[in-house]
């Protein structure tokens, strides 16, 4: 049981990097960005290919990060310069990435068995796979949270945050909202690809299909974090994303343990997210507004 829990926590930390990326587009920019489904595979593919070609596993993480950023840039250009709706822009990049990812990998699956990964560095110092994953996950997640907390407090970061809420006002304050949207998409997809690279190295293979449904997993984690930990200040929101991602993995581990077939996981996740997103509506049905206005008020 403890094994299941620590396994879920370690996986949750790696997926938390991706969850933070999804949060940037979904909540900060107010865009449901499907590029994610392709950029997570892209990150995995770049890292796997690089490592199998003898590149340092840590350098491979950075290559993946840059790859994801270019994917985000592509979606950003489609959405802003060519004015294609955000959802469709993401879908177009995602579909395009399928071919690109296949070219990077050269085949449907690339194994990293017996090759050095970022985790083997820790394992060689006597740690097991799970604890080295948790340690590296924590380092990555903390570094990303610190950098993002700083970045979204800068002049550029503030402009990006305002863009998602009120682009008209941001333009009136002299900011090019095309630039802020593109920047947000670049950062988001960079993180998603980094997450993909961490996951691929952890599971010791990159797979062309591993991105399917990842956007829903990201959204589920964002929403779990919000529901359980509220929407207080920015730092606590960032931390809630990590907790949301970890809790999502624990829930999945538990339902699998309870005997749900693994093939039903995606359906389970989709239904969970649909339920979570419809909570406000469901609440209206369950607790209709009572006539609480008293006479004379």
């Amino acid at each position: 049981m403890l094994d299941i829990l620590t396994g879920a926590i370690s996986l949750g930390l790696l997926w938390a990097v991706m969850t933070i990326g999804v949060y940037i587009t979904y909540r900060i920019l107010d865009i449901a960005d499907l590029t994610v489904e392709g950029s997570i595979v892209m990150g995995a593919a770049i890292a796997a290919k690089a490592i199998s070609n003898g590149v340092n596993p840590f350098a491979a993480l950075f290559l993946a990060l840059f790859g994801g950023m270019t994917a985000g840039f592509a979606t950003g250009l489609l959405h802003t310069v060519l004015r294609i709706p955000a959802l469709l822009s993401g879908i177009l990049t995602m579909i395009g990435l399928y071919s690109i990812n296949l070219r990077i990998l050269g085949r449907a699956t690339l194994s990293l068995l017996k090759l050095d990964t970022v985790y083997t560095v820790f394992e060689s110092r006597g740690m097991d796979r799970t604890s080295s994953t948790i340690l590296l996950g924590l380092i990555c997640v903390s570094a990303i949270i610190c950098i993002l907390y700083w970045f979204f407090g800068t002049e550029i970061g503030c402009a990006i945050r305002a863009t998602g809420r009120n682009p008209q006002m941001v333009r009136a304050q002299g900011v090019n909202t095309n630039t802020t949207k593109i920047l947000g998409l670049i950062i988001s997809n960079g993180l998603v690809a980094l997450s993909g690279a961490l996951i691929a190295q952890n599971q010791t293979f990159a797979d062309l299909q591993m991105g399917t449904g990842s956007i829903v997993i990201g959204l589920a984690s964002v929403i779990i974090g919000e529901v359980l930990f509220g929407k207080k200040n920015f730092m606590s929101r960032l931390i809630s994303l990590v907790l949301g991602s970890v809790i999502y993995r624990i829930i999945i581990a538990l339902v699998l343990e309870l005997g749900m077939p693994a093939n039903d996981l995606k359906l389970f996740t989709a239904i969970t997210v649909a339920l979570a997103l419809s909570l406000p509506v469901l609440r209206e049905y369950l607790y209709p507004v009572k006539n609480s206005i008293k006479e004379g008020n």
């Binding site: 503030c158 945050r161 009120n166 006002m169």
Partner: peptide, 22 residues
């Protein structure tokens, strides 16, 4: 911008016409 503080909104306006930096 409703999701941002009074001071953050003012700060956005204070930089109108300037290049935004880090």
């Amino acid at each position: 911008a409703a999701n941002m503080g009074i001071e953050e909104n003012l700060a956005l306006a204070y930089r109108r016409g300037q290049k935004r930096t880090l």
